[in-house]
Simulated scan of single mutants.
Amino acid sequence: MDIKIFHNSRCGTSRTTLDAIREAGHEPEVVDYLANPPAREQLKKMIADAGLSVREAVRSKEARYGELGLDGAGDEALLDAMVANPVLINRPFVVTPKGVRLCRPSELVNEIL
Rank of each mutant, 00 (worst) to 15 (best):
L18E: 02
L18N: 00
D19S: 04
D19N: 05
D19W: 07
D19A: 13
D19M: 05
D19G: 01
D19I: 09
A20I: 09
A20R: 15
A20G: 09
A20H: 07
I21T: 07
I21R: 03
I21N: 05
I21G: 08
R22W: 06
R22T: 05
R22E: 10
E23H: 13
E23N: 14
E23W: 05
A24W: 13
A24T: 10
A24F: 14
A24D: 14
G25R: 11
G25T: 07
G25K: 10
G25F: 15
H26W: 15
H26L: 11
H26S: 08
E27C: 03
E27V: 02
E27T: 14
E27G: 04
E27I: 09
E27M: 09
E27S: 13
E27A: 12
E29N: 08
V30Y: 05
V30S: 10
V31G: 03
D32S: 14
D32K: 03
D32P: 06
D32F: 00
Y33R: 00
Y33M: 01
Y33G: 01
L34T: 01
L34F: 00
L34S: 07
L34W: 02
A35W: 00
A35C: 03
A35K: 07
A35T: 08
A35Q: 06
A35F: 00
A35R: 09
N36C: 00
N36T: 07
N36W: 01
N36R: 07
N36A: 10
N36V: 02
N36P: 00
N36M: 00
P37Y: 03
P37Q: 03
P38F: 10
A39S: 11
A39K: 15
A39C: 03
A39Q: 13
R40T: 08
R40E: 13
E41V: 08
E41A: 10
E41L: 06
E41Y: 09
E41N: 10
E41S: 06
E41I: 06
Q42T: 15
L43S: 00
L43W: 01
L43M: 01
K44H: 09
K44V: 08
K44F: 00
K44W: 04
K44G: 09
K44M: 06
K45I: 04
K45F: 02
K45E: 14
K45G: 03
K45V: 12
M46D: 15
M46T: 13
M46G: 11
I47Q: 08
I47D: 08
I47V: 15
I47L: 07
A48N: 05
A48H: 12
A48W: 11
A48I: 11
D49N: 13
D49E: 15
A50K: 06
A50I: 12
A50W: 05
A50Q: 01
G51R: 15
G51Y: 09
G51S: 04
L52M: 12
L52Y: 10
L52C: 07
L52D: 04
